[in-house]
């Protein structure tokens, strides 16, 4: 078996289990043979390697990944790609486009620890276009792929914004989109607030992280929404409002935090309000 970088050792530990001999046989192939086998091996991965959950965190070449979202088949798929490297972008895209829901999920998880490239970009385009929940989660959550792609120039600000908006549309939690909260943008805020308005008009729930991102890059209407959230009956919305108020960093708004504090009973909301009041 091709040596695995120390950063991927946690994935290697997942090899122990069902069908281990079948998996190791494929990992032992020389890279050319491993590449040739990928189109037939990937379709069987979820079935053979199984979906048992992993745990822990890894840092691979600057990529930060929470393995709590990974299954054994994701780990095996990533190691198979490593065994087959160099795998060119065309091969990766072919695997993705010919893959079923599981194969695509595995490739997206693997992409979060592999070098960014044209295939990564195509994967993200497909995720954006197809709107599959499992693929959005694999592409956006529990790692910092989105922000690395933005910072590295693979994703334009517009594509990044649209992916985050799609994640919001599907109610994915901002807390699991590593680094995204630190990349607010005025256009993203505008889109998120428009989505919130549409949802409210339809009597539907609003993405609960809307204000957290909006507070970092406010546009017209943001402040009114943040202040209104402080009085919301739902504590998670009040918390988002208090955190957004803090992110706005406006001394002239500190009085609103102070006014709410005596009536706020939730400790986490109070903590955010106290910091906002002290600005």
């Amino acid at each position: 078996m091709k040596p695995v970088p120390p950063a991927l050792a946690a994935l290697e530990r997942a090899l122990a289990g069902p069908e281990e001999a079948w998996i190791r046989e494929r990992l032992d192939l020389d890279p050319a043979a491993a590449r040739a086998a990928l189109p037939v091996v990937f379709p069987a991965l979820a079935r053979r390697a199984g979906r048992a959950g992993l745990s822990g965190r890894i840092v691979v070449g600057g990529a930060h990944v929470d393995l709590g979202a990974w299954r054994r088949c994701d780990a095996v798929g990533t190691l198979l790609l490593h065994a087959a490297d160099p795998v060119d972008d065309a091969t990766l895209v072919d695997l993705f486009l010919r893959g079923d829901l599981e194969e695509r999920t595995i490739l997206l998880r693997a992409a979060s620890v592999r070098p960014l490239g044209a295939a990564t970009s195509r994967f993200l385009d497909e995720v954006q276009r197809t709107n599959v929940g499992a693929h959005l989660e694999a592409a956006c959550l529990d790692h910092d792929l989105l922000v690395r792609a933005l910072d590295g120039g693979l994703l334009s600000r517009d594509r990044f914004d649209r992916l985050v908006l799609k994640a919001a549309f599907n109610d994915l939690p901002l807390a699991r989109m590593e680094g995204v909260r630190e990349r607010p943008g005025a256009e993203l805020t505008r889109m998120l607030l428009d989505l919130a308005t549409e949802r409210e008009a339809a009597g539907r729930p609003v993405w609960r992280d809307t204000l957290r991102l909006a507070g970092g890059a406010p546009v017209a209407g943001t402040v009114a929404r943040v202040l209104g959230a402080l009085e919301h009956g739902d504590a998670t919305t009040r918390l988002a409002g208090a955190e957004a108020l803090l992110a706005l960093r406006r001394k002239d708004l500190a009085a609103y935090a102070a006014e709410r504090l005596p009536r706020e009973h939730r400790p986490d909301v109070r903590a955010a309000l106290e910091r906002a009041a002290a600005l």
Binding site: V41, D100, E102
Partner: peptide
């Protein structure tokens, strides 16, 4: 066909 014969 071989890749499809391995699909779930």
């Amino acid at each position: 066909l071989p890749r499809y014969l391995e699909k779930d």
